[in-house]
Write a protein that binds this DNA or RNA. Structure first.
Length: 322
DNA sequence: AAGTGAGACAACCGCATGTGT
DNA sequence: GACACATGCGGTTGTCTCACT
């Protein structure tokens, strides 16, 4: 409702972030943990709005983020999830712990959309293609969730329900406190693989990653929110390690989308919820993921992707996947 | 070698939702 | 129960880099 935009203030800087700003933000989060973004600009002296700070952190500075080069598996996963969930990037991103929703969204808009279009044009519809748009549902490719609802045989509410189930399952898993997989040591910020353009910037990001490694190691362990301020908001802090429990999760190792992700998902701890609330959306589909994976790899089943997934996660008995 | 166009990525904007008072 | 505030999400735009002519 009549809420004033957070970035209304004059003097708020916009545009690309400089390495210096990144450092300021990172070091602040190091000390206070992520969260309470409102206070970040004032406390850091950054001339950015809180939103911008949060975005910068979650999309770029947060450790454990893999950049560039989507693997084939990731691609497939995205296509199928998009078909299933629509443009709910945050939910989709929860299946790809190393990727940010923004990244996935961009990748979809720049690569996959075209790819699928081509496929359809070729009369193929191959993989996600056919499945996804349910017959070109998205036409323009945009408006995912919205248009999907019209074209998809299943209502969007059903998809939501589906996601909710994931969330619920995750919650239950947390409650049962499965222990997390060991924080598989990150292969060091894979970050620095930006393609071309970002190369220059990558180096600075790399530096930041190094910086993070330094401070994230307080107790030797990225362990459980052992981070600088292991509490509350720190959730993210914990994440800060390139091998975090929250974001990058162990999956950090290589093509996480594969097997790694499963473990990764499990790695989700309640603490991670703050920053990764997005993750909560899709929940930590650890078990589901493996099934999803096989489902995905089983291309033959394509064509009814949705039904396929529905089968994967029977509405009636989600518990079965615990 | 220079100019133009296309593609890719980062960031911003506005709306929706959740939480606290 | 209503209101206000903070955060999260998705869509869109702007900028930069690379490839081609």
């Amino acid at each position: 409702m009549g809420r004033p935009p957070c970035c209304d203030k004059v003097g708020v800087k916009k545009g690309p972030w400089t390495p210096e700003e990144d450092l300021m933000l990172v070091s602040y989060i190091q000390e206070h943990g992520a969260g309470n973004w409102r206070a970040v600009p004032t406390n850091t002296g950054l001339m950015r709005c809180s939103k911008s700070c949060r975005l910068r952190w979650t999309n770029y500075l947060r450790p454990g983020i893999k950049r560039g080069n989507f693997t084939e598996q990731e691609e497939k996963l995205i296509v199928h999830l998009q078909a299933l969930l629509g443009n709910r990037w945050a939910a989709i991103a929860s299946y790809l712990p190393e990727r940010t929703d923004n990244d996935i969204k961009n990748y979809w808009n720049t690569h996959l959309k075209k790819k699928l279009k081509k496929m359809q044009a070729a009369g193929g519809g191959e993989d996600g293609g056919a499945a996804s748009e349910g017959g070109g549902g998205r036409g323009d490719g945009d408006g995912g969730g919205k248009s999907v609802k019209a074209a998809a045989p299943k209502g969007q509410w059903e998809r939501r329900l589906q996601t909710d189930i994931h969330t619920a399952r995750q919650a239950l898993r947390d409650a049962l406190s499965l222990d997390h997989p060991d924080p598989s040591p990150p292969t060091a910020a894979p970050a620095a693989t930006p393609a071309g353009s970002s190369a220059a910037y990558a180096s600075s990001a790399d530096n930041i990653a190094r910086l993070l490694q330094g401070w994230m190691r307080p107790g030797g362990g990225a362990g459980n929110g052992k981070g600088p301020e292991a509490s509350g908001s720190t959730s993210t802090t914990a994440t800060t390690q390139p091998q975090p429990q929250c974001s990058g999760e162990g999956a950090a190792s290589a093509s996480a989308s594969q097997s790694g992700a499963a473990a990764a998902a499990t790695a989700q701890t309640p603490e991670c919820s703050t920053e990764t609330s997005k993750m909560a959306t899709g929940g930590g589909p650890a078990p589901a993921f493996s099934m999803l994976e096989s489902w995905l790899l089983d291309d033959g089943g394509m064509g009814h992707g949705e039904l396929g997934l529905m089968d994967v996660v029977p509405l009636g008995d989600p518990s079965e996947f615990f």
